[in-house]
């Protein structure tokens, strides 16, 4: 039991294992098979919903009742792609409009987050000033309260401002972006500051001695050096915004201004879910692809940023 446990308990020097009794190899093999079996079971658990939704999206009969794992009754491409066809070519479902809204909102939010947080992070990392540590703690504390808690206030604020500056009011991309930007400041400034701290200060010092001002030092020297963390924060902000649902649903009010998540949910889930299952599935498959591809391609960077932020934050 103990030896098996040790092998399960990984990363241990091989030497300590070698001096264990006969039959060790056999036991090790059994444990490996057990490990593989558990992992495979987990993979099935993890992937089955994905397989199922993809299968549903190709089921020509659309409804949940008629779904089988391998779509039945598919004889030609038209039948295979019927759900996609319905989704993309029904005027009632402005699918590409939703995608465009989502991409626009996510891109602007992500860009703004990166630019503004990098400025702040540079200052926190490079200057020492009165109130600095208090401000940093304040950023963390504020972050503890998710902005969905203040959603009533946010709704009313946008309503009040929107009567005078329409493009940042309720039901506008501008208003939603402002809300997202405000909410994104805390964690990301911390994440970036941690990375900025790892860039040696000698670089700034020498540039300043050479007569560059702080802005030039920041923009021409430091900014390119911290690009990895900027990319991570940008991607996380993009994906997070693209997938956000709660605030978007409160603030955006009509079919044309909805983001993809709100559009999918309100059109296909809120009413007649069972009947719209196939169309919903097609929308989900298309809607998940961007995030999925980004995550799987960049998993190392994202995991790096995540754990770094986690350990620091």
């Amino acid at each position: 039991m103990s030896s098996a446990g040790v092998s399960l308990k990984a990363g241990i020097d091989a030497k300590s294992k070698k001096r264990i009794e006969l039959g060790y190899r056999g036991q090790q093999r059994i444990w490996m098979i057990v490990r593989m079996a558990i992992l495979t079971a987990m993979v099935i658990f993890a992937l089955f919903p994905v397989v199922w939704i993809v299968s549903a999206s190709f089921n020509p009969k659309q409804s949940m009742v008629s779904q089988t794992l391998i779509p039945q009754g598919v004889e030609n491409a038209e039948q295979l792609l019927r759900n996609y066809n319905t989704l993309l070519n029904t005027p009632r479902y402005p699918f590409w409009r939703w995608v465009a809204n989502s991409v626009f909102i996510a891109a602007v939010t992500s860009f703004g987050t990166v630019m503004l947080c990098a400025l702040s992070a540079y200052s926190f990392s490079r200057f020492r000033f009165w109130g600095r540590s208090n401000l940093l703690v304040f950023l963390l504390l504020v972050q503890v309260f998710p902005n969905i808690l203040a959603v009533v206030a946010i709704y009313l604020i946008l309503q009040q401002i929107g009567t005078h500056i329409p493009f940042i009011g309720l039901n506008t991309a501008g208003g939603l972006i402002l809300v997202y930007l405000g909410g994104a400041m805390g964690v990301n400034i911390w994440l970036m500051k941690g990375f900025f701290d790892t860039v040696p200060r000698d670089i700034d010092e020498s540039a300043l001695v050479d007569g560059a001002n702080h802005w030039q030092t920041y923009w021409l020297l430091i900014f390119p050096l911290v690009r990895p963390i900027l990319v991570v924060v940008g991607i996380l902000a993009f994906v997070g915004t693209f997938n956000e649902f709660a605030l978007a649903r409160v603030i955006l009010r009509d079919n044309e201004s909805w983001t993809l998540m709100v559009g999918l949910y309100t059109n296909f889930v809120s009413n007649n879910f069972g009947q719209n299952w196939g169309i919903y599935a097609a929308g989900s498959v298309l809607g998940s692809l961007p995030t999925l591809i980004i995550y799987l391609l960049l998993q190392d960077q994202i995991v790096g940023g995540l754990t770094q932020g986690a350990v620091k934050g």
Binding site: L39, M42, V43, A46, L47, P49, V50, W52, I53, A56, M64, V65, Q67, L69, F242, N243, F245, M261, L264, Y265, V269, F273, G274, W277, Y280, A281, S284, G287, S288, T291, L292, I294, Y295, L296, Q299
Partner: peptide, 27 residues
């Protein structure tokens, strides 16, 4: 493969489960 649930939009994932757990036709 095991990260996949994390990489999907939470809303879509949950709604997919909602379909799968459906009382009458859920898989």
């Amino acid at each position: 493969l095991l990260i996949v649930p994390y990489a999907l939009p939470a809303l879509i994932a949950v709604v997919t489960w909602r379909g799968m757990l459906n009382d009458n036709f859920g898989v």
